[in-house]
Nucleic acid binder design. Structure first.
Length: 473
RNA sequence: GCUCCCUUCGUCUAGUGGUUAGGACGCUGGCCUCUCACGCCGGUAACAGGGGUUCGAGUCCCCUAGGGAGUACCA
């Protein structure tokens, strides 16, 4: 057992996109396998034919790929394994550990109502246990759950949790239509795939004793379980679309880096002292399933933003440029028609929290803005700005060498000549050239915009001031 | 209803009987500064409530409250 290699799995049902909660569960499972030199298996639990779709499978695979949670085996599809499930059910039947049941919906409903009325847990009464129902008439197959005793789950995260068998139901293993149910398929798969550590959402904690009983009936060994708590929205309510992005892929669209999301997710419900920043290697080295919190945690986009900015800041400008390019495209910009995108990215790395913000901030390097930001224009494109701008226009017009050094010197020179602080010259110039009051250093800004566009935009700004004064006058 | 689980600053968390209850995000004061950021220095804010156990409890036990999950021929 000790020498057995660790095998974990992620087993989503393909009924939607990969959401952050699932992603975190997958991450923990993946980290555990990586940390222990084990295998990470991907299994698609698609036995719900009604709700499972191929699009969802693709969405999940896409999300995992983006996050870099590569799997070693799979994806295995449960719909391909019905023969195997049926063989197991038949075997359980032969051993008398399962039985046919043809109780009607009505009877079951009645049973349930009755139990509720008496403040009891609704539970199948075993009516068909002793009846001999013909295989030819419509029926389901139920598991013969032990009547007494307790099932103890030594959960890696929750600690010891015990359930009385009296609380447990004779659950359905095979439906009337012949298809196997969830609790049976998971157990068979975990056994067949030799999963050693079942790390999953804590909505499955209540299923665990039932699954353990089935596993024992099959004579299989038990994996270790770790039930990770769920993720809530900022308001403490269950995470849903109204909280903003819940789909992993939405975060890519919103300009987040996968490593930022991963770092955020690993710190949600887990920590290693005071450390906030974890590279993938550090996560693998330091992650410990025992240290995962028991309580649900709320998703906080502000902190994710901070991490995202951190990674944007740290990353190679070339990679940022590569990732930024599609976001530029969203703004109708072709980065090939202008300064090197890595250069633009580099200038904005300390300013943008997301790639979407960066694209917005850097757009001025590629195209003329439509209008001046009203606030910025009101404050900086006034009569007093005319002279500084005219002088800048003259100095820059004759500047042969368009470098940060010469540009900085030019602004400095005009400021000195006018005997004003640099801001009195740089700010109007900035608004003239980028349309708003914030941008990288004025020297960098001018260099990126280029001489022709700079001069053109200064003229536009001077015209703006003239018109404004005419209107006011 | 019943079973199971959870509960430290607004949020993520540290803390394993003795701490001025620490860090991070956010918010905020200041420094830096051509703007915005970055960076740096400082501030703000928490043990759900009540009983025990103990010389001593955020840490152990019980109760209450509040939250969550399950209770399907969904997964």
């Amino acid at each position: 057992m000790r020498s057995m290699t660790v095998r974990t799995r992620f087993a989503p049902s393909p009924t939607g996109y990969l959401h952050v909660g699932g992603a975190r569960t997958a991450l923990f499972s993946w980290l555990y396998a990586r940390k222990h030199g084990g295998k990470f298996v991907l299994r698609i639990e698609d036995t719900d034919l009604e709700r499972s779709t191929a699009e969802s499978v693709n969405a999940i695979l896409e999300g995992m790929t983006w996050l870099g949670l590569e799997y070693d085996e799979g994806p295995f599809y449960q719909t391909h394994r019905f023969d195997r499930y049926n063989a197991v059910i038949d075997d359980l039947m032969e051993k008398g550990l399962a039985y046919r049941c043809n109780c009607s919906r009505e009877r079951l409903d009645q049973l349930r109502d009755e139990a509720m009325k008496h403040k009891q847990k609704p539970r199948y009464d075993g009516h068909c246990r002793a009846r001999d129902i013909s295989p030819d008439e419509p029926h389901v197959i139920r598991f013969r759950n032990p009547d007494t005793g307790v099932v103890v789950v030594d959960d890696l995260i929750r600690g010891r949790v015990s359930f009385n068998n009296e609380e447990l139901d004779d659950l359905i293993l095979r439906r009337t239509d012949g298809s196997p149910t969830y609790n049976l398929t998971v157990v068979v798969d975990d056994m067949d795939m030799q999963i050693t550590h079942v790390i999953r959402g804590d909505d499955h904690l209540n299923n665990t004793p039932k699954q353990i009983n089935i596993l024992q009936a099959m004579g299989a060994g038990l994996p270790k379980y770790g039930h990770v708590p769920m993720i809530l929205g900022d308001d403490g309510a269950r995470l849903s679309k109204r909280h903003g992005a819940v789909s992993v892929m939405q975060y890519r669209e919103d300009g987040f880096l996968p490593e930022a999301l991963l770092n955020y997710l690993v710190r949600l419900g887990w920590s290693h002292g005071d450390q906030e920043i974890f590279s993938i290697d550090e996560m693998i080295e330091l992650f410990d399933i025992d240290a995962v919190n028991k309580a649900a945690s709320s998703f906080n986009t502000e902190k994710l933003m901070w991490l995202n900015q951190h990674y944007i800041k740290e990353d190679d400008p070339k990679r940022i440029a590569h990732l930024l390019s599609p976001h530029m495209g969203e703004l109708g910009i072709d980065p090939a028609e202008g300064p090197d995108l890595a250069d633009v990215a580099s200038a904005h790395q300390e300013r943008a929290r997301t790639l979407v913000e960066m694209a917005d901030m850097g757009a001025f390097c590629y195209k003329d803005f439509e209008t001046f930001d009203p606030q910025a224009a009101k404050k900086h494109l006034r009569g007093v700005a005319r002279e500084p701008l005219e002088r800048m226009r003259t100095v820059l017009g004759s500047l042969g060498d368009w470098t940060e050094e010469s540009l900085h010197a030019a602004v400095q020179q005009v400021s000195d000549d006018l005997e004003v602080k640099m801001g009195k010259v740089a700010q109007p110039l900035r608004v003239a050239v980028v349309g708003r009051a914030a941008s990288p250093g004025i020297d960098v800004t001018l260099r990126l915009v280029g001489k022709a566009a700079t001069l053109r935009r200064i003229d536009l700004a001077l015209e703006f001031i003239r018109q404004r004064e005419a209107n006011a006058g």
